[in-house]
Amino acid sequence: MNKLNILFVCGAGLGSSFAAQMSAEDVLTKLGVTAKLDHCDISSAVSMKPDVIITAENFRTQFEKFTIDPQTAMVYLKNIVSKAEIEEKLTPVLQAKGIL
């Protein structure tokens, strides 16, 4: 794998996805992981092929209606700016992808 590609998704692709991205940047720095980070809205996310999608738990049912590449790991957060929750849920994904 080249560089890990993580996509942060919210309804409009502006506010909460960007807030989650900023929190995740700190977590990734702490873990020593270099990744390409981007954020967008749900409808745009469906056509993209990131390694990981990070989004709020309340978007789970919307994502379940879409066909997402099976190689894309989905991370659902209850608190999108909680660095502790991001680290807790992202670490096993990074391990499974051989990044950690």
Rank of each mutant, 00 (worst) to 15 (best):
M1N: 07
M1R: 02
N2I: 04
N2H: 13
N2Y: 05
K3T: 13
K3F: 04
K3V: 13
L4Q: 00
L4T: 12
I6S: 01
L7M: 06
L7Q: 08
V9G: 09
V9T: 07
C10P: 03
G11V: 02
A12R: 05
A12L: 09
A12G: 12
A12V: 13
G13W: 05
G13L: 04
G13K: 02
L14D: 02
S16H: 12
S16K: 04
S17W: 01
S17C: 07
S17E: 03
F18W: 08
A19T: 15
A19L: 15
A20E: 14
M22W: 00
M22Y: 02
M22G: 02
A24R: 01
A24W: 00
A24D: 01
E25Y: 09
E25H: 11
E25W: 09
E25A: 14
V27C: 08
V27P: 11
L28M: 00
T29L: 11
T29F: 07
K30N: 13
K30L: 08
L31M: 13
L31G: 06
V33E: 07
T34S: 10
T34M: 02
A35W: 00
A35R: 01
K36E: 10
K36S: 05
L37C: 01
L37P: 00
D38K: 15
D38A: 15
H39D: 14
H39I: 10
H39Q: 15
D41W: 04
D41C: 15
D41E: 14
I42R: 03
S43Y: 15
S43W: 09
S44C: 11
S44V: 08
S44R: 12
A45R: 00
S47V: 08
S47Q: 08
S47P: 06
M48Y: 15
M48A: 15
K49F: 07
P50C: 05
D51T: 01
V52F: 04
V52L: 05
I53V: 14
I53D: 05
I53L: 10
I53W: 10
I53G: 09
I54N: 02
I54K: 01
T55Y: 03
T55L: 04
A56V: 07
E57V: 00
N58C: 06
R60F: 01
Q62N: 08
Q62I: 07
Q62T: 10
F63V: 03
F63N: 05
E64Y: 03
E64L: 01
K65I: 12
K65S: 14
K65W: 12
F66D: 11
F66Y: 15
T67K: 11
D69P: 14
D69N: 15
P70R: 10
Q71D: 13
T72G: 08
T72Y: 03
A73N: 01
A73G: 01
M74T: 13
M74Q: 10
M74I: 09
V75K: 02
V75W: 00
Y76R: 00
L77F: 13
L77Y: 13
N79P: 02
N79I: 11
I80L: 13
I80R: 07
K83M: 11
A84H: 11
A84I: 12
A84S: 10
E85P: 14
E85C: 08
I86G: 04
I86S: 05
E87I: 12
E87Y: 14
L90G: 05
T91R: 15
P92W: 03
P92G: 07
V93S: 04
L94F: 11
L94P: 13
L94T: 07
L94K: 07
Q95I: 04
K97N: 09
K97T: 08
K97Y: 11
G98V: 06
G98Q: 09
G98A: 09
L100I: 04
